[in-house]
Write a protein that binds this DNA or RNA. Structure first.
Length: 240
DNA sequence: ACATTAATTATGT
DNA sequence: ACATAATTAATGT
């Protein structure tokens, strides 16, 4: 408790900032400070790309603050939001998958703060810092599981259920409690939701409006509060 | 069951 | 005042 002094162009790096994050939790103090010395920190405005799909994956990243959306562009130029990444997670770890280019674009959903390291350091990190590689695999595994689930959803469920699933995922991963329910932590538009669920913003708008009338959610411009998560769970289950 | 088109309104800088 | 977001109805596949 302290150390919250100055706000800088180049934010000062403090061990306590990352010491508790999963990938580093098991590491010794000097290991952490060693890692920090090699890190570059950057602040990103909301709605900007940290790296782009197809570019050479010269660095890997750790999100210190904010939210990232991982975006892919289809051949016909449509955006698809693959998933969101909350603070405290590694991303852009193409090097861990043996790739030399990024498979997707990382856009900031909010103003964000990142650390990054040259990809060349990855292997060194993995075998000199025990637990680092294991944690990285865990997050990769988790994301693959998510993508699996979503593929099934896309193929089997109807739009209202897919939207319900998307919203539930958002409040689980990036939700924050307010008195009326659970609010999604970053600005999110109907367009965004449509890009996650493979529909149109109009359909999303109509569905959300109907949920609002039913009292499941409360929504405003770029914000959604889920007041009755259970009802959304029911919708996904299919029982109506 | 959902997309598309289009017109209208609300909201944030 | 302007741009961006959201709603709503009508029409199409």
């Amino acid at each position: 408790m302290k150390t919250k002094s100055r706000q800088n162009l180049r934010p000062r790096l403090d061990e306590s900032l990352i010491a508790d994050l999963p990938p580093f939790a098991k590491l010794s103090r000097e290991a952490i400070s060693d890692i920090l010395k090699q890190a570059t920190s950057r602040r990103h405005d909301a709605g900007t790309a940290i790296f782009e799909e197809g570019r050479e994956a010269d660095r890997f990243y750790m999100l210190l603050d904010g939210y990232i959306r991982v975006v892919r562009i289809t051949p016909d130029g449509e955006q698809v939001i693959a998933h969101h990444i909350p603070a405290g997670q590694l991303f852009g770890i193409a090097v861990a998958l043996g790739r030399d280019t990024y498979p997707a674009t990382a856009m900031t959903a909010t103003e964000s703060l990142s650390l990054s390291w040259p990809s060349s350091l990855w292997n060194e990190f993995v075998d000199t810092h025990i637990g680092f590689g294991a944690q990285a695999m865990k997050t990769v595994g988790g994301r693959m599981g998510e993508i699996n689930n979503r593929m099934v959803e896309m193929a089997t469920q109807q739009v209202e259920q897919r939207i319900a699933n998307a919203v539930l995922r958002l409040i689980n991963q990036t939700g924050h409690k307010v008195d009326s329910g659970i609010e999604i932590n970053f600005p999110i538009t109907r367009q965004d939701l449509s890009e996650m669920t493979g529909t149109t913003l109009h359909t999303v708008s109509r569905v959300l409006s109907s949920w609002e009338k039913l009292g499941y959610i409360k929504s405003g411009r770029k914000r959604i509060v889920v007041t009755d998560p259970h009802q959304l769970v029911m919708l996904c289950a299919g029982k109506n």
